[in-house]
Simulated scan of single mutants.
Amino acid sequence: MSQHRLSCEELVKDHGGGFQLGPLSLDLAEGLTCLVGPNGAGKSTFFRLAAGIEKPTTGTIALQAGDGEKLGYLPQDPDLPRGATCEDFLHYVAWVHRIPAQQRSETVTRVLAHTNLADRRTSKIRTLSGGMSRRLGIAQALIHDPALLLLDEPTVGLDPRQRIALRETIASAARGRIVIVSTHLVEDIRGLADRVIVLNEGAVIFDGDVPALEGKATPDAPGDTDLERAIATLMGEAE
C-alpha cells in the first residue's frame, strides 16, 4: 500500500475575472502523474496550491507522508544563481533544508549522480545547457528526499535529446514518491505517465492511464497519434 498520498477534497481556487480551478476531488499516490492541459487550464494554479504558495478559496489539499510532510518543487522558470557552482548551490539548498553539516557532501554527491550531473559538480551554473539546468533544478528539489515532487513544465524549451534525458531523470525520481509533472507537450506523456489528469478551463476532463486516454481518440480529430487525437477530442468536447 502506498505510504505517501496527496488528497484534494472539493478544492476550489477562484482567481476572479471568470477563471476558477475546481472543484477538484483527487487522491494521488506514489508514482508519476502527468497534469496535462493548454496554457490557462489551471496547471500552475494547482501546483501553487499543492506547494502551499497559495491557499484554496474553499476545500482542502493535504499531503500525508509517512516520515514527514516534505515537498520538492521546481517552478516553470527557476531562478538559479548563475555565478555559483552546482556544488555550492546544492550545499546551500541542503543547509536551507537543515540537512546536518556532516551529511551535506554525501547528499550533494547523491543528487548530482541521480540527475547525471556528477561531472559538472564544479561547473558554474551559467555554463550549463538548458537540459542540465533543468536537471540541476530537479536535484535541488530532491535534496531533502521529499515525499512529493512537483515539476512545472520541466521540458519546455528543450530540444528532443534534452527532453529524453530529462524524462529519464524524472522517471527515476518517481520511485517511492509522488511525482506530478505538468505539461502541454503530448510526447512527454507516453514516456512518463503512470496516470494522466487532463485539465481544461479549471476542470478535470479525464483521469486515467495512457491506454484509457488513447481510447478517447476519434478518427477525425487532429493529430498524428492516438494520444494527440485523444487530447484533441477531449478538448473539443469540453468547448
Rank of each mutant, 00 (worst) to 15 (best):
D79E: 03
H91I: 08
R110Y: 02
S105P: 00
E30Q: 12
P75A: 02
D67K: 14
R120T: 05
T127M: 11
C86R: 13
T109P: 00
T109M: 11
F19G: 15
L128A: 05
G157W: 07
L21C: 08
A118F: 01
G68T: 07
T107A: 01
T155R: 06
I53D: 06
V156W: 01
C86V: 03
V93G: 06
G31A: 04
T45S: 11
V96P: 07
K43C: 06
F89W: 15
T115D: 00
K70N: 05
D67G: 12
L32Q: 14
H97D: 00
T122V: 04
T107Y: 02
L26E: 06
C34Y: 11
H114P: 00
V111I: 09
T115R: 10
G52L: 08
L112G: 08
H91W: 14
N39P: 06
L158R: 15
V36A: 12
T85W: 03
E106S: 09
K124D: 01
L80C: 09
L117G: 06
V93D: 06
N116V: 01
Q102P: 00
W95P: 04
L24D: 01
F47T: 08
A62M: 12
A51Q: 10
N39V: 04
A139S: 15
E30S: 11
P154N: 15
A50N: 07
A41Y: 13
D119V: 13
T155Y: 10
D27F: 02
L148A: 08
P75Q: 09
G16T: 14
A94F: 04
G42I: 13
P154C: 13
Q76Y: 00
G131V: 13
E30Y: 04
L28R: 09
G157Q: 04
E69G: 11
T85D: 11
G52F: 10
A84Y: 12
L21N: 11
A29V: 07
I99N: 02
T122G: 07
D77L: 15
G37Q: 09
D27N: 14
T109I: 07
T85I: 04
P81F: 03
S123N: 11
D119M: 11
A29K: 14
D159P: 12
G137M: 02
V156P: 03
R135H: 08
A50Q: 12
Q102N: 04
S44A: 09
G130I: 04
H114D: 02
P23Q: 12
P38L: 08
E153T: 04
G83P: 00
N39Q: 09
H91Q: 04
G22I: 07
N116I: 01
K124L: 01
C34R: 05
A141F: 08
L158M: 06
T60G: 10
T155S: 15
G59W: 08
A113M: 10
E106Y: 02
H114Q: 10
E153I: 13
A113S: 13
Q102C: 02
R126P: 01
K55R: 15
R82F: 01
R134G: 00
M132V: 03
R104W: 00
R135W: 05
